[in-house]
Computed example of a mutant assay.
Amino acid sequence: MSQSTSVIGAAAVFAVALGTLVAGEARAAGPTGACLLTPEVVRLSGTQSAPGSRGSMTLTQPGSPFEITVDEGGFQTFDIEIQVEQMRKRRGAVYVAWAAKPELDEWVQLGTLGEDNRLAGRVAWNQFLIFVSEEASADVERWQGPIMLTGLSPSGRLHTMAGHGPFEAMNCQLYY
């Protein structure tokens, strides 16, 4: 067998494998043809104001023919479903979910938890925090009450090693 024949054979095997993969994605995509990434489940942890509280947020990618949806600024867009499994609630209080950039210089209110302790929203930041605050009213522009639950986007866990371990003499804040 010549070298060109084996290259053509390898290309044919690759084409069949690629065709199978693409066909499999098309079947999994549903009627719109948009492929969604696997949902990411992130734990929400109770703070000192709500010890023992816990919940989760499920991040999914909104449908798109390009698999990843971005907003007009180029930030990846996530649909978020928040579910609180356990949290002591105070009578008359409203529990508001927020998303914020890690520096807390920008934030958005996602809404209030429903009777079923769930909330759905959308965030378009590459790295973000999610937190739930206890408020007297849902009509607040910025959280005022205690933070009850917190969580961090998967990309928010990326961090430089400057300032840690063998690099403790370096200030990691210089790298942000």
Rank of each mutant, 00 (worst) to 15 (best):
A26H: 01
S53H: 06
A50S: 13
G9N: 15
W143D: 04
A17N: 02
R142I: 14
G9P: 04
W98P: 01
A17F: 03
E25T: 12
R157V: 11
I80L: 11
V70H: 02
D105Q: 07
A120D: 09
S6V: 09
S153Y: 01
L113Q: 12
M57R: 01
G151P: 02
S137V: 13
T58L: 09
G73M: 07
T47F: 12
E168P: 00
F75S: 14
A23M: 02
L59N: 00
T47V: 09
V22D: 03
Q144P: 04
G33M: 05
Y95W: 03
A29I: 01
F131N: 09
I68N: 04
Q144T: 07
P31F: 00
L174M: 11
N171K: 12
C172D: 14
V94W: 13
N126T: 05
G24E: 15
N126Y: 06
E72K: 13
G74I: 08
G19F: 02
A11I: 14
E25Y: 14
C172L: 13
D105F: 03
D79Y: 02
E103S: 15
C172Q: 14
A50N: 06
T38V: 12
L152N: 14
L21E: 11
L152G: 06
Q83K: 14
R142H: 15
E103P: 01
G74S: 10
A136Y: 02
Q127P: 06
A34P: 01
S133N: 00
V94D: 14
A120C: 05
Y175V: 07
W143Q: 10
G145I: 09
V84P: 00
G33S: 07
G121N: 04
G151H: 03
A99F: 10
E106F: 04
A120Q: 14
S155Q: 15
Q173K: 08
L44H: 00
P65S: 06
M57Q: 05
W143V: 11
F131H: 01
A10P: 01
E141C: 03
L104F: 07
F131P: 00
P166R: 00
S137D: 15
W125C: 09
V132G: 05
R118N: 01
L174I: 10
N126D: 10
